[in-house]
Design a binder for these strands. Structure first.
Lengths: 130, 130
DNA sequence: TCGATGGATAGATGTAGGTCAATGTGTGGT
DNA sequence: ACCACACATTGACCTACATCTATCCATCGA
């Protein structure tokens, strides 16, 4: 096993690669949660002023601690906000967070494509293969 | 524990939520791999015609089986291509895949924002809360 | 104040996954 | 034919995590 040399100081958007939030997006239960927050099934909504935890329990068909566990993770990752009003905790998506993550992925795509069609006027370094 | 009712038939872009590829983006080692493929450190590149597995081993400082393990996962997820030439396997990013995932996240962001500033002329359903 | 309801926490359990050493497979040079 | 190198596979080990039951905490209504 070799020893790692210096890390590459990547520019900002690539820094988001490795963000723990991505892991949350891969779980099927949490994916359902996010989809539900985005477009709630009315038959699962017990209240008119937002989506609360018990709605998710109904919708997902999982135990209440499981819902609580996932929501805590989503809130800590900044993907969702939680607001306690009375006995209920209301959840909402954080669009800015999704935008940040999405922009980073698009930036990766753009950079790869740009590197593959270098401008006719060679300015910078070697175009991937010398 | 309640029983789950019908699933919400989400439109296409939201379907990507839960994609296993997201999980891969969260791992720090794989994040380094992707960053390296995007912008290789020259001192870690043994060959001039692409990035091979041994370059990654050098760059990451992890064992060869670990590199192989991660690359297999990335290829199976469609994030990276692998092409064997001679003794070496050359890896490349798949920008279309990153674009698809990124677009989906931006779509989530857009939908949330659209739902929060409903047009003055109410056309569709109730704007989140009735 | 008491009970009911929504939610959080703790602990247990099973599975998934990241890493390694050891070994197998294929390719190319001598 | 042989050896060296690049990579894949196997199996072991340990950690992370998704889920559950049981229990505790907080809020509200009677």
């Amino acid at each position: 096993m070799p020893t790692a040399p210096d890390l590459t100081p990547q520019t900002a958007p690539v820094t988001v690669l490795g963000d723990p939030a991505f892991k949350l997006l891969a779980d099927p239960t949490r994916a359902k949660i996010l989809a539900f927050l985005l477009d709630p099934v009315q038959s699962c909504c017990s209240r008119s002023d937002g989506i609360c935890g018990c709605d998710l329990e109904t919708f997902l068909g999982v135990s209440q601690p499981t819902v609580s566990h996932h929501m805590k993770a989503l809130v800590e990752a900044g993907l969702v906000t939680a607001e306690k009003r009375g006995r209920w905790v209301y959840y909402d998506l954080v669009p800015e967070r999704f935008r940040t993550l999405g922009d980073a992925l698009l930036d990766v795509a753009r950079r790869v494509e740009d590197a593959r069609k270098p401008s006719p006027i060679q300015l910078g370094g070697l175009p991937q293969s010398a």
